[in-house]
Design a protein around this nucleic acid. Sequence first.
DNA 1: CGTTGTCTTGAATTACATCAAGAAAAGTGG
DNA 2: CCACTTTTCTTGATGTAATTCAAGACAACG
Lengths: 229, 229
Amino acid sequence: MFDEFSAEDLTVMQAFKTGEMVVGPGAQLFVEGAHTPQLYTVLAGMGLRYKTTADGQRQVINFVMPGDFLGLQAGVMGEMSHAVEAATEMTLCVFNRADVWRIFKTNPQRAFDLTYLAAMEEHLLGDALSRLGQHGAMEKIAWSLHRIFSRALAVDMVSEDNRCALPFKQQDLADALGLSLVHTNKTLAKLRADGVATWTAGQLHIPDLDRLGELGLVDKEKVEKRPLI
Amino acid sequence: MFDEFSAEDLTVMQAFKTGEMVVGPGAQLFVEGAHTPQLYTVLAGMGLRYKTTADGQRQVINFVMPGDFLGLQAGVMGEMSHAVEAATEMTLCVFNRADVWRIFKTNPQRAFDLTYLAAMEEHLLGDALSRLGQHGAMEKIAWSLHRIFSRALAVDMVSEDNRCALPFKQQDLADALGLSLVHTNKTLAKLRADGVATWTAGQLHIPDLDRLGELGLVDKEKVEKRPLI
DNA sequence: CGTTGTCTTGAATTACATCAAGAAAAGTGG
DNA sequence: CCACTTTTCTTGATGTAATTCAAGACAACG
């Protein structure tokens, strides 16, 4: 799924990298509005990006999976507009914010990749926006599960029998889609009854991804390559 | 509102710039999924970014105003994930997609600005997402009008008596917020009756921006500087 | 001056939220 | 390992915000 990593790239990134870090479930990687000195690439584990609204509600922006780059906003804008929290134990590759500028000075290709990633996020958020704005609960949930599962496939986290770990709560999914917990639960029950998607005990089972995609109105989009930072 | 433009920056950007362009209302600046060779900075006029969903619905991503940079996605990813359409006559500063890479090679500061813009868009989309997911019609509409008006203030498009041009249809606002036209209309009528916001004949009148902000649950966020490309 | 697009308003319907309460899990401590 | 508490999941009943349907009033336009 990722662009190839040349020997030179590796050297450059190794200079940029300052270490590895392991955090436990529930750890706050970023706090909303805070000034943080570090950026991360997710090597293993899953997490949540979310915003807290003025009246105390929570909007989950998306689900964080291995390969994701965290903190680009803080890296260029100084502070994060959303929080990031670990849902499982996570292994992270750590970079210094101060080095971002150095990348731009010394390695245009990597700088370009950063912009690419930002544009990619924008694209994904746009998708989410149109799903939230224009569709009903069943479509939202089917779409979301489809997206998660496709991504898991891309990073090889899906087992032979079409199962992957999904260590979130139903409340998290509800908050991602702007639905109530109750309605989310009932819709998941329907998908389960129909044999389209079964999510129990932190495991998501999708026997037929295309069928789920139809319910979620997913247009068979190419799996896009993304740069790995 | 914009970062200062040094003499050197000006020279660099003038080399990058390939011309100016004026388009009429209704013109399609970008088509969804298309490969376009040009990028634009909006000098005057307003427009819409939108996506069309699989089942034919339309989600307006945001409203385009002077100072916006259009086509960054196409610039780095090759194709746009959304369409852009002019709502009024628009004046655009034209750049070549091929030159984007040159920017990264020769002018790290400008390259950084591009990434900054992308991160900014991501931030704005995240805001929109949480508004769509977590709030009711009144809050959505108040929030949206607040955002538009604040932006208009920043680019000095608001008259003495707190009016600015808003050349969109109610349907556009409805599609931006995931509401039906009817409900949008009724909510606007309520705002008008309460004297908070009056939008008629393409003119938006906001006597008291703070009052609107309260209704829209807007936390008094600093007006952020953005780079002008 | 008819035709078409946008706005406006009322009435009927529905998808979803809220309320409530029980059943599983998953921690916690003795 | 077993009570005990707390969290997460599940299901039914009730309420409501927003949709859809329908139709009239303005505007804009050729």
